[in-house]
Each structure stands twice: as C-alpha cells, then as structure tokens.
Design a protein around this nucleic acid. Structure first.
Length: 272
DNA sequence: GTCCAGGCATGCA
DNA sequence: TGCATGCATGGA
C-alpha cells in the first residue's frame, strides 16, 4: 500500500480486497450515496468525503493527509490484511464460494455513537427505510458541512429533543429508546469510550443494559462501532444462514466472526 | 389490503 | 429461563 498526496486529495495505491459497492452499501453504514460516476459520497466522523476506486487505486478527493491518517485510514480498515483474512475464512465451504462471489467486503470502523443510534433505528426495519430515517435525522439536527451534506448529530444535540420530536422523524416506536439513549450518552450515564476499553463480553453486557438495545443491536454496534471483530450479529437473515451451521461456527471464524458474518449476511440477502 | 424488515420490552408460565 | 404478543412505518 502506497499513499500519495495528489490533486488536493489522497491516492492510495495497491489496495486489495476492497469493493466500494459491497462495503458501502451492504447494511453496515447507512449514509453513503453512489454518484453517477460510480464514486461514493458521504459523511463520517464529521468529514465529507467523495471516494472512488480504479483498479487497486483508491482516491480520497479533497482530503488532507491529516484527516486521512487521523480518520479515513482507520474507517476503511486499510491497515488490516483482508486478503489473508479471506484466505482463512475460505476454509469453510459456504464462505469459500460466497467470498469468490462477493470479494471485497470490509468492516467500516464507524463512530460508536453513530453506530449505536443507527442500529437502534434498524430494529424491525428494512435497510431502505433505515437510510431514509437517518437522512432525516441528520438533515434536521446535524451540522451542514457542505451544501446538502450533514454530520450525524451529536448526543448532546439530540439530548434536547422530546419523544415527540423523534416521532416526527418517522422512527415509530423507537422514539422512546432514542430519547433516553441520547440523554444518557450526553450526560455521561452511558460512557461509550469506556465501553470500547472493555472485553467483548463486558462491552456487550454494558450495551444490553441500554433501553432499546437487545442482543442483535448490541452485536452490530460492537462490530461496526466498537471494533470488536468477534461480534456476530444474528438477524432474520442470519437466522436462515445458521441452519447451515448446525454444529456451531467453524474454527476458522475464530477472532474474525464479524467479517465472516458480513459475507454470510450478503449471501443470504441475495440467495435465500 | 397484506406482509415484511439487520428486534425489543413486557408479561406470563 | 423460555415463549407469545404488541409495536410504527413505508415499500413491495
């Protein structure tokens, strides 16, 4: 991997196992929009980004080196060896064919607050509508950092909202969960940074104490927002996949269960 | 009109 | 501990 400053952005050469379509539009992040030229635009970590891929070259448009090193490099998990991970996972026969079909899915290291909120909204909901709601939330309460592009609102900002305010965004019965979650994170009753430092089991336990967070939402948040690659979310799609693993998960998933899960989730949505 | 979606809290046994 | 039920909304 070679990193070059070019044309006001950052060019990363030699990026393997990264497919933008599969990674940015697979139901782990909800704020990326495909552009007519095939690139993706979105906001994460308070930064706007347009990203494009040409062969093994990845281009971060209008991006300073500091922001790339400080945020995007980690967000796209560029320092993890996904080629090796995929080789390991392909010891499993179902994943072997799945990875061949959908090569290049990565885990995005999202901010814990955004991930937690997003997956509370995701429950008993479909991906299209999750995106719709989160878009409304950001437009209403986020900060406009580029024309038409808004940040994900902070817990402090959302702590000022009432249950009715959330309901107006169309979140339905989840409004009461979001209202309490926002206030508790803003006040420090829930400390997301501390949860990051815990073991997987302890972190999961802490998330399960949150009103509106069950085992599925907790595991999604752990995987996508707290960097626990062993978290293995099981939703309605993954329940169907689990019939293929009656004896439990294979040994080769160990430590990277979450990455295996992303491939299986994608396979299930396209084949079951 | 009916069914379903990256489920959860609640009540009851 | 495990299971049934209600829950908001919008797209298919």
């Amino acid at each position: 991997m070679e990193i070059i400053s070019k044309d006001g952005g950052i060019l990363v050469k030699g990026v393997e196992c990264l497919d933008l379509d599969l990674t940015l539009d697979c139901g782990q992040a909800f704020r990326w929009e495909k552009q007519d030229d095939g690139s993706y635009s979105g906001v994460a970590g308070g930064h706007f980004l347009n990203i494009s891929k040409n062969g093994d070259d990845l281009f971060f448009a209008d991006t300073e080196k500091e922001v790339f090193d400080g945020f995007w490099r980690g967000y796209f998990d560029l320092d993890k060896n996904y080629v090796q991970i995929c080789d390991t996972l392909k010891q499993d026969s179902l994943l072997s064919s799945t990875i061949d079909s959908y090569y290049g899915i990565r885990i995005l290291n999202q901010e814990s607050w955004e991930a937690l909120c997003s997956f509370v909204i995701s429950q008993q909901n479909n991906i299209k509508r999750i995106k719709l709601i989160i878009n409304r939330l950001c437009r209403a309460y986020g900060e406009e950092i580029k024309d038409g592009w808004y940040t994900f609102p902070s817990a402090e900002r959302l702590a000022a909202l009432s249950v009715e305010d959330f309901e107006k965004l169309g979140v339905g019965y989840r409004a009461k969960y979001l209202e309490k979650l926002s206030k508790d994170v803003a006040s420090g009753v829930i400390d997301l940074e501390k949860i990051k430092s815990l073991s997987l089991d302890e972190a999961r336990k802490a998330l399960l104490d949150i009103y509106g967070v069950g085992i599925k939402v907790a595991n999604c948040a752990l995987l996508f927002g707290f960097q626990f690659y062993s978290a293995f979310p099981v939703d309605v799609w993954m329940k169907r996949v689990m019939e293929y693993y009656p004896d439990g998960l294979p040994e080769c998933f160990s430590g990277i269960e979450g990455i295996a899960q992303q491939y299986l989730f994608h396979w299930a949505r396209n084949n079951l």
